[in-house]
Design a protein around this nucleic acid. Structure first.
Lengths: 216, 216
DNA sequence: TAGATTGTTAATCGATTAACAATC
DNA sequence: TAGATTGTTAATCGATTAACAATC
């Protein structure tokens, strides 16, 4: 009904994280106040975020942890199998494949590809690295809907084009470069250098004073 | 003077990325219009973002690419050496170390630590993995201001505490968990599972129709 | 019943965009 | 000079927060 903003959607996985944690510690019920404390978020915001999708809480009580986990997983479509493909079997690609156990939740990297013949055929856990020529048929066969890009920046656009052509719906790009994709493809960026550079901004300056900036 | 919002700061590294690219292709000058096209951003926003920090452009002409790169690098404090430490010499940690060449720009991972004796002493490129006991002295010695966390979620809080105790100013956390740090420490999250889950939300639903949601 | 906490409306705050004078 | 494009103010849009009736 109402349009749901990106900011809201980005908070949902974080809520899920905290809820899973509470669940593991056998906590039955949680209030928006408690969640807000844990996440440094305004409780009203949490209630409003959740209310976009339904009435999940009980007045005077709070939210049932298990039930809310179930609901958020539904919203994020984690209640159905979700197949992910990855291109770039370098260090980063291999590292991400190791998160497969973390992902559980029906979401799984089901195929890995690389352009370099020397890498094709090698094993990453239970996955065998495949050639780029196999990308399109495998995306169809395995019903891969998300493509992860972990190749060098110069090759990233090409890989993105291949993913789009193969029919994925979303792309997660780890290469430090902006990609052009059609409007109907969703693209998220996960470039850690960008993150690191913006972090650098907040470090205290070396010599400048706060109050009275020198006039020149 | 005016408070600069986080949204603005997060866009700066992206501007830098595109500008570096233009510079490599020997482009001398760029307008906010052109930058906006490349980044899918409103030109007015780009002009406004930059204007927070000074007058970098020339009316009727645009921005000098090299000059703007220099200015943004100053803003992000990339014009001075910036030493980064990393804890967790697993696959992900190793992968990030390989970005060292990418970072160049005075920013560099200068030390790697791990809690597991079996890993301590092994090499990652030119870096030797060190024991956790060496964390504090090395942070001081190398003037490490940013700590990267690439350990499993359960150990992440402990590592964060160690980093804070050692005196870093900022933390980049790759573990999928919220961390508690003092207010004066800046913390950024780079958890790719969170990113992947929010991406899942935007994939088309399997059965639901767009127009006429069923009433129940 | 009294206390707690939700869902939601209204108020506030902040960020994005439009518009335009200044000027290269 | 005419055309282009900045820096900046004003207008718009959207997101966050406060407040409170409903209700467990």
């Amino acid at each position: 009904m109402k349009k749901i903003s990106e900011a809201v959607v980005r908070r949902l996985p974080v809520y899920l994280q905290v809820l899973n944690d509470l669940h593991k510690r056998d906590v039955q019920t949680v209030s928006s106040q408690e969640l807000g404390n844990k996440l440094d978020l305004n409780p009203a915001q949490i209630r409003k975020d959740l209310a976009y999708f339904g009435e999940f809480g009980r007045k005077g009580i709070g939210y049932d942890v298990s039930y809310l986990i179930e609901k958020i997983r539904q919203i994020l479509k984690l209640d159905q199998p979700l197949s992910v493909g990855l291109v770039g079997a370098g260090n980063l690609g291999r590292a991400l494949c190791n998160y497969n156990t973390y992902l559980k939740d029906n979401m799984k990297i089901t195929a890995v590809f690389d352009a370099h013949p020397a890498v094709v055929g090698s094993q990453i856990n239970s996955l065998t690295v495949q050639a780029m020529d196999d990308l399109k048929p495998k995306v169809e066969e395995l019903n891969i809907v998300i493509g992860i890009i972990t190749v060098p920046a110069v090759e990233a656009q090409n890989v993105a084009d291949r993913f789009v052509d193969a029919g994925v719906k979303g792309i997660l790009n780890f290469a430090p470069t902006i990609l052009r994709v059609p409007d109907h493809i969703r693209i998220h960026y996960a470039d850690f250098t960008t993150e690191l550079l913006s972090l650098a901004y907040y470090l205290e300056k070396k010599e400048e004073e706060d109050d009275e900036p020198a006039v020149d």
